[in-house]
Every structure is written in structure tokens, then in C-alpha cells.
């Protein structure tokens, strides 16, 4: 029992260090320690399922240990900058002031094709459009385009829109009213009943109904079978 705990602890540290050593190429979306925890938990949980002779308690304890260590390590990373740097690495700037940083690319073991692939997934097809490109600690690429390639927004055009900016919410989903969403839209059941009465519908007739805080709504009726 103790042995599986110690083994889990050592494997967690070992795999985390190995993953950090392998670099950001191996990571996508998750932080290194999160990835390690996910991989290890799924593998540990699979063993007692496959092998019914193996005591379940070892797997349970190992999963508890991993989950607790992940929480504690992330708390430690939150408190200590140096620990965060050690455990998760640092963001790396691969395009700085519009210039490619070959040294950084080499240290990340990224080819230009890898960089272009990630730029394309960000909607950028010309490297000349990028002022800064930063490889985040989770391996994803964040880009900051040059001024002339930035999309024009309402602020730049001094356009002010009337009404609120909150997005619409689904207040009825498959014939069920979501009262939390209704509350978010600053509406109540009375309002909903009134609207439905004016449309000549019952809640059970509606597949989906969205509404925003201005009270603008859209109804999708259920298909008749």
C-alpha cells in the first residue's frame, strides 16, 4: 500500500520532469503537471479493471494522491513564481517585433512548418502580419498582429451600440425552463408566460428559446412527429 503511494509520488515527479524536459511540443492545452496527472490517473484506473486480482485500494490511494498533489502543486505554483517557472516553464517569444527568433525556435525544437501550422490555426497565413508570437506554457501559440493587420472594432470606429452587451441565453431547452438563465436575462415566469401566450405556445411545444437582457427572444418549436 505504502509502496504504491511512494511509487505514484516518484512516477508523478519523474514523468513531470520528463515531460518538461521533452518541451512544449508534447503538450497541448494542458499544463505539464495536469497532463501527467491525467495520463497517470487514466492508466492507474485501468489496471484494477483489467486485473481483478490487483487490490483496488492501491489504485484508489494512488488516484487520491495524484489529485491531492495536483491541487497542492498548483497552489504552490500560484504562490511561488520560481516554482511556477520550474513546474510549468515560461512563455517563449518566437516572433519579437515582427522578427523571427531562430534561437527560441531551435530551443523549442520547432520547425518553421510547426510555427506556420499554429499561425494558420490562429487565422494568420502570412508571417509578416505578426508583431509578436508567444508560445504559452501549455504549448499553444498566442499572436499579436501588426497594427495594419488588426481587425477594426466598434471602439476604433467610435460606434456605440444601444442596449446591453450580455449574450443571449437559452431559457427553454427541450421543453424545460432554465430559471437561472431566465433570472440572468432579468425576466421572470410571468414574462415568459405572457410571451408564450402571445405566441400561442406551451413550454412543452418549444425545443429551444433564447433571450437576451433586452427581452429579445427567438423560439424554435419542436418538430411534430
Amino acid at each position: 500500500m505504502f509502496i504504491s503511494l511512494w511509487r505514484t509520488f516518484f512516477l508523478y515527479v519523474f514523468v513531470s520532469v520528463a515531460l518538461r524536459f521533452m518541451g512544449k511540443r508534447q503538450i497541448g492545452e494542458l499544463q505539464p503537471s495536469e497532463l501527467v496527472t491525467t495520463i497517470m490517473i487514466s492508466n492507474i484506473a485501468a489496471v484494477p479493471i483489467e486485473n481483478t486480482e490487483s487490490p483496488l485500494i492501491n489504485a484508489l490511494l494512488a488516484v487520491i494522491l495524484l489529485a491531492c498533489m495536483e491541487v497542492l502543486f498548483s497552489a504552490l505554483a500560484l504562490k511561488s513564481r520560481s516554482f511556477r517557472g520550474f513546474a510549468m516553464g515560461h512563455a517563449r517569444c518566437v516572433i519579437r517585433d515582427g522578427m523571427l527568433d531562430e534561437k527560441e525556435l531551435r530551443s523549442l525544437r520547432w520547425s518553421l512548418d510547426d510555427l506556420m501550422e499554429l499561425l494558420r490555426t490562429n487565422g494568420i497565413f502570412d508571417i509578416d502580419e505578426v508583431l509578436f508570437a508567444i508560445v504559452e506554457t501549455n504549448g499553444s501559440l498566442s499572436t499579436y498582429p501588426k497594427h495594419r493587420f488588426r481587425p477594426v472594432d466598434n471602439g476604433a470606429l467610435n460606434i456605440s451600440l444601444d442596449g446591453c452587451e450580455a449574450p443571449p441565453m437559452l431559457i427553454i431547452s427541450d421543453g424545460n425552463v432554465d430559471f437561472a438563465a431566465l433570472n440572468y436575462c432579468r425576466r421572470d415566469k410571468k414574462w415568459l408566460d405572457k410571451v408564450l401566450a402571445s405566441e400561442g405556445l406551451k413550454v412543452s411545444d418549444i425545443f429551444a428559446m433564447s433571450c437576451d437582457r433586452d427581452g429579445k427572444y427567438k423560439i424554435f418549436k419542436k418538430e411534430k412527429r
Binding site: 500500500m1 505504502f2 503511494l5 490511494l61 487520491i64 494522491l65 489529485a67 491531492c68 498533489m69 491541487v71 497542492l72 497552489a75
Partner: peptide, 18 residues
């Protein structure tokens, strides 16, 4: 709260194993 629960669980697990 989650940090305290994790720390408590770790301590309890270690004591239980011991």
C-alpha cells in the same frame, strides 16, 4: 478549501497506510 482538503487527505492517507 480545496487545498486544505487535499492536505488533510494526504495526511490521512499517510496515517492510514502507516
Amino acid at each position: 478549501k480545496r487545498i486544505y482538503i487535499s492536505a488533510a487527505l494526504l495526511i490521512l492517507t499517510a496515517i492510514g497506510c502507516h
